[in-house]
Design a protein around this nucleic acid. Structure first.
Lengths: 162, 162
DNA sequence: CCGAAAGAGTTGACGTGTCAACTCTAGATT
DNA sequence: AATCTAGAGTTGACACGTCAACTCTTTCGG
């Protein structure tokens, strides 16, 4: 019933342009982060999340929730970052509970510097060049999109808004 | 040097929201494409590009240019898609020239169906829910960003050796 | 107490993406 | 003509992401 006619050329062009802008921007930001801090985007996300936990150890499940990453993705990333010396898995007590995750000193250092540098890049590449109107439209669109897409996940779950 | 003060909390929040919207949207679109057409995003891009070449064979270099992908990325993707039977590398004549790339019958079929389905999803998930004002602001921002980022590509030449 | 089910985390296989090193040919240099 | 070099394409190593299968502990039902 849903007539699936192909996109009009100008629709494709619009979509293509938009996606290209996102891709180029993401590429530029990630390259700079890598070059200036020797930290990848995935590492950055992980570092920020652990950094925000302010020294407290986090469980894999919390990281997964907070980053909106698959648990297995978190685990793989932790393995890589453990090798790099950014994080450590610390076993819980004798009760056999699984690992808590914490930043190493090296991880803290990297997190601080990366947050500063990356924040600066975001400001320079993006925020500074947005007109107030653009910013407000983009914010509105983002809210709209996130609402729609996140509600889709829990379909039958509680409304969440309390 | 530009003073690199950390982003204000509301700036982070804005950036975070925007990125989350992009991420959720991309995830949703890719999942649907995968589920409905059994075609990944990378495969889709490749299929579309070859499809637009209207049966004509393309060289790896042209694909690389047209997709804005690294040549090695193109080559790896071709290898995978050759295994799936979507594309074939056809050797040029006896002059030893390298491969030309073409869609197989199977590839054509997949391209047609994926373009239809994916286009429909883009329309439903995105285009239909954009107000004209949002669309025009997003288009303007995208143009602005693409201009700035694409012009930057030439000038980041590796200096050092004068 | 024993065993099934549930929850947390890990692992392996594989597709994707990047970087650097490599092969092969063609055209330029001498 | 012999070689050097530039361009095209491939390959291997490794980081990133996803999916399904697995381990281990806790918990719940008999």
């Amino acid at each position: 019933m849903t007539e699936t006619r192909p996109l009009e050329p100008q629709e494709w062009e619009f979509w293509d342009l938009w996606m290209r802008a996102q891709r180029l921007l993401a590429r530029e930001l990630e390259r700079d982060l890598q070059r200036e801090c020797d930290v990848s985007k995935a590492e950055f996300s992980m570092l920020v999340t652990l950094w925000q936990a302010a020294g407290r150890e986090m469980r894999v499940g919390e990281l997964s929730e907070s980053l909106d990453w698959d648990k297995s993705r978190v685990s793989h990333q932790l393995t890589r970052m453990e090798k790099r010396g950014f994080v450590k898995r610390t076993k819980y007590g004798i009760d056999g509970r699984r690992a808590g995750i914490g930043l190493t000193t090296e991880g803290c250092r990297a997190a601080q510097s990366a947050i500063l540098v990356h924040g600066g890049n975001i400001r320079r590449y993006v925020l500074d060049s947005l007109t107030p109107e653009q910013a407000s439209v983009i914010r509105a669109w983002s809210e709209q999109a996130v609402d729609r897409l996140e509600s889709r996940r829990g379909e039958t779950a509680s409304d969440g808004a309390s």
